[in-house]
Simulated scan of single mutants.
Amino acid sequence: MSRKGNCWDNAVAEGFFKTLKSECIYQNKFANKEQAALVVFEYIEAWYNRKRLHSALGYMSPEEYGKTLNKQNIAA
């Protein structure tokens, strides 16, 4: 862990929330808290985790990456 004032510990979380806000939150207007929670849930489960390409995964979606990893483990 880094010392107080260094941002590297939270870099992954900060990057995710920046993406969430720019791709989901700022694109919608919500009538209430429940609607916002539903939209965020759908964004994370349907788009971010299944279809969105991630540079850290070799520009594959997490779902694709998981399938590839499972195939490699079965073959090994």
Rank of each mutant, 00 (worst) to 15 (best):
F41C: 03
K21N: 12
M60C: 12
K21T: 05
E45H: 12
S61P: 01
Y59T: 00
A11E: 00
G15L: 01
Y65L: 08
K33D: 01
M60D: 06
K21Q: 06
Y65A: 03
Y43D: 02
L57N: 04
F30K: 04
S61W: 02
M60Q: 15
A75E: 15
S22E: 12
L53Q: 10
Y43K: 01
C7A: 15
P62C: 02
Y48N: 07
Y48K: 09
C24D: 02
K67C: 08
S2A: 14
R3L: 13
K71S: 11
F16W: 00
A76G: 06
T68D: 10
L69Q: 09
A75R: 09
I25L: 15
S61H: 05
L57I: 03
E34N: 00
R52Q: 10
I74E: 14
D9Q: 09
L53D: 04
D9K: 11
S22L: 11
A37C: 03
E23Y: 07
W8Q: 11
N28W: 11
I44G: 00
K51A: 06
A37E: 07
M1Y: 12
Q35E: 14
R50C: 04
A11R: 11
Y48F: 12
A11F: 10
G15A: 13
K33V: 00
A37S: 05
N6T: 10
A36W: 09
N6D: 14
L20R: 04
L69H: 05
N73I: 13
E45T: 05
S55C: 04
G58S: 02
E23V: 02
A36T: 02
H54A: 03
E63F: 12
V40D: 00
R3W: 13
R50N: 14
N32C: 05
N32H: 03
M60K: 15
I44Y: 00
S2F: 14
H54I: 01
F41Y: 12
M1T: 12
E23S: 02
P62I: 04
A75M: 09
Y43R: 01
K33S: 12
A56E: 05
N32M: 06
L69G: 02
L53G: 11
S22M: 08
F30V: 01
E14F: 10
A76S: 06
S22T: 06
Y26T: 13
A11I: 15
N49A: 04
S55K: 03
M60W: 12
A75T: 03
D9R: 09
S22Q: 15
E63M: 11
Q35L: 03
K29F: 08
N6W: 12
A56R: 07
S61Y: 09
K21W: 08
R52P: 05
A31K: 08
Y59Q: 05
F41M: 03
L38D: 11
G58F: 02
C7E: 07
A13L: 07
K33L: 13
K4Q: 13
I44L: 06
V39Y: 02
L69D: 08
Y65H: 14
W47C: 10
A56D: 05
N6H: 15
Y59R: 08
